[in-house]
Each structure stands twice: as structure tokens, then as C-alpha cells.
């Protein structure tokens, strides 16, 4: 996939380092990572546990700050932002999908999907319309009033994806989205993510340890010992 010249990357790492602890016990989770993710890409991040892939994901998602190096999100230097400013960045430009779904307990699918819009101060009627629309896009229009206890794992993850895309984010971050699902549901979720990426142009970054899942992406990055060791572009 070729990147149009002059387009600003969504994510741009330059010499990113993340060190936990200090002195002899210091752990270099990220050790000088350079990375650029452009709009419309579907990037799979792979690596063994402890390779730094999760830390990279947290830094991309502005949940964590790098120890050194420069991270620009849509051209904005994240390193100088306060915690609240980073939260606002997430609120307005990012959507998150987690391995454990993280839906609110005893809350309907519709209310779960509405949650990010609540923090965006979207009026109730508009909120409801957009949440129903997002549920429609993940094929769960008929489950709007079901609580998470009344849904299967695959359905819960679809609700989580609806929650992540309801704000029309610039970047969708998926952390092992199929980790808790059987292979059939995994394929369905991956197909959903792929179609959202292709048809709606949503930029996706996904962390996974399953090569099968990584193949759905347009590009795969492999982490080892805090460094990117290989980068392959899907055929």
C-alpha cells in the first residue's frame, strides 16, 4: 500500500523509549522505536509477551507517556500534553476495543454504545440515533436493549466495537480483540474490523499474538525486546 505524499501520519513515533523502574532494575519496554501509521491503514502489531507490543499500544492510545522520543498524533506532539488533554484526545479521536470487552455490567448494549457520546456532551436524542446506527453497523440492531449478561462473547465484542466507532474516531485501537473468542467468532470479528477499515476508512491498530488474525491487516509489525524487528506489508 502506498502512502500519498504529504499526508500527515495518524501516529508518528521517533526514537520512542519507555523505561520502567530505574538503575539496575530498569526495564526498557520500548527501546528506540520509529513508526508511522497513515490514515486508512490496518496495522497488526505482533510479538511475544514482554516484547513491548502492549506498551507501544498504550503509548499510541495516550494511556501511557514515553520516557524519551517524540510521539505525534495527527501532527500534535503528545509529550507536552497534560493528562486531561490526553483524555480529550482519546475522547475525540480514538476508539478502544479490549480483549475482555469491558462493557458496563447490568447496562444495555445501547447504553454502552452511548457512553462515549455522553462524555462528548451529545444531546440525548442524537446520542440514541447514532448509537443505534453504530449497533446497526456491527449487525446488532435487534440486541439494543439486551444487557451484556444476555449476550454471547462475539456479540459483546461487537457491542464494544460499536462503542469504539460510534464517535467516528480517527484511530481504532484493538487490544487482542479475539483473545476471548472461539475461532468462528474470531473470524467474524476480524471480518467486521476489516470491513470497517476498507469501507469506512477507519484506521485500525490491532495487537495480537495470533498470526492468523494478524494477516487480516494491511501491514504487520513484529516487536522483540522493545524494538521493531520486522515489518511486512500484506500482499
Amino acid at each position: 500500500m502506498t502512502v500519498p505524499a504529504g499526508s500527515i501520519p495518524v501516529v508518528e513515533f521517533r526514537g520512542i523509549e519507555k523505561v520502567y523502574g530505574d538503575g539496575d532494575y530498569a526495564v526498557r519496554a520500548l527501546d528506540g522505536v520509529d513508526l508511522a501509521i497513515h490514515p486508512g491503514e490496518f496495522t497488526s502489531i505482533m510479538g511475544a509477551s514482554g516484547s513491548g507490543k502492549s506498551t507501544a499500544m498504550n503509548v499510541i492510545g495516550c494511556l501511557d507517556v514515553p520516557t524519551a522520543g517524540s510521539y505525534r498524533f495527527r501532527g500534535v506532539e503528545v509529550g507536552v500534553l497534560t493528562q486531561d488533554q490526553r483524555a480529550l484526545l482519546r475522547r475525540h479521536f480514538m476508539g478502544f476495543v479490549f480483549q475482555g470487552f469491558n462493557l458496563l455490567a447490568r447496562t444495555t448494549a445501547l447504553e454502552n454504545v452511548e457512553l462515549p457520546l455522553v462524555y462528548r456532551r451529545v444531546p440525548a436524542r442524537e446520542r440514541r440515533r447514532r448509537a443505534l446506527d453504530a449497533l446497526g453497523q456491527v449487525g446488532l440492531s435487534d440486541r439494543a436493549t439486551h444487557t451484556s449478561a444476555e449476550m454471547s462473547g462475539g456479540q459483546k465484542q461487537r457491542v464494544a466495537i460499536a462503542r469504539a466507532i460510534v464517535t467516528r474516531p480517527s484511530l481504532l485501537l484493538a487490544d487482542e480483540p479475539t483473545g476471548n473468542l472461539d475461532s468462528k467468532r474470531s473470524v467474524e470479528i476480524m471480518e467486521l474490523l476489516t470491513s470497517l477499515n476498507r469501507e469506512r476508512g477507519i484506521t485500525v491498530v490491532m495487537v495480537t499474538h495470533e498470526p492468523d488474525m494478524a494477516e487480516y491487516g494491511s501491514r504487520t509489525i513484529l516487536f522483540r525486546d522493545g524494538k521493531i524487528v520486522s515489518e511486512g506489508v500484506a500482499a
Binding site: 492510545g61 482519546r90 478502544f96 479490549f98 462524555y119
Partner: peptide, 9 residues
């Protein structure tokens, strides 16, 4: 989850 979605402290 709320914090990740963008809730302020």
C-alpha cells in the same frame, strides 16, 4: 474503561 474512552479524572 471510562478513562480510556476519554473521561476526565
Amino acid at each position: 474503561t471510562r478513562l480510556a474512552i476519554g473521561a476526565l479524572g
